[in-house]
Amino acid sequence: MRDLCVQYLTPRGPVRAVDGVSFAIKPGEVFGLAGESGSGKSTIAHAILRLLHPPALITNGQVFFNGEDVLDMDDRELERFRWREISIVFQSAMNSLNPVMTIGDQIIDVIDAHMQLARGEAQERAAFLLDLVGIDPKRLASYPHELSGGMRQRAVIAIALALSPPLMIMDEPTTALDVVVQKEILQQIEELKEKMGFSILFITHDLSLLVEFSTRIAIMYAGEIVELAPAQELFSNPLHPYTQGLMNSFPSISGPKKKLTGIPGAPPDMVNVPSGCRFHPRCALVQPMHTRVVPRLHEVSPGHFVACHLY
């Protein structure tokens, strides 16, 4: 992704939800995207697959996948591209699944839309997919409301894997689930990733989850990436004050008890973004120059990028 810009047009003015975001996902890696509400992380997920509707517009950038720019594709090319190359798992499985169709029918629906398989073969593949995500293939005939929350999310993952795409986007897939179920599902995904070799773009606000699960992590704030680094490096050496503030917002269950402060203030109004560094109203280390000049994302140590004037 190079320099992606997404705007929402509102009567109050354009909201620059994503403003010049660039990153690359390597094969087989889990790329974590962390941020709070209004950071633009979900917008990126939808923009990659061009799922946003007006008044959302993509106003700049390129999204290359295997050499092709997704933003240049027309409707027909997009139809072929979606799900085959990149699939997506949304937050609430209950919203992603059609309540009046069985799970089996929904998987077969997806298969039929993209592959020419005989009915029997499609059934087999559907059963295989359910088994892959840890659901008894007999549940092909179940309706979504007959499954528990965790199983529904697994079913959604099965649908996402139907065409074995090289990249799967997961937008807050476990936020609505209990922590135990969350752990099980993530373990399952990890196993599948090892087995099938796909990459994951994992979007969430839960930074501690990302550190455990991702290869590299990008932190987003107010539509921009403010820090990007390998997971352990980010955890042990967070550079951007926002990242440090986020780290200071997760209590732990082990180790010494320390006082956590979070970050003062509130996320910015995206119609009138702060000038210069967008984090400056909430930053304890702000200097006058920071309010005027926008910091650029640059490499501070191998693989560790940060957008902050302090470095």
């Binding site: 509102t10 009567p11 061009r50 509707h53 007006p54 008044p55 106003t59 933003l71 409707d75």
Partner: peptide
Amino acid sequence: KETARVLKDRSLRNARATPVVRSSAP
């Protein structure tokens, strides 16, 4: 209603895929 008005201003229609409108000014 307001969305419809805003779209009309920019002469955009509601399309299946997110429209990409690259302009020189970001």
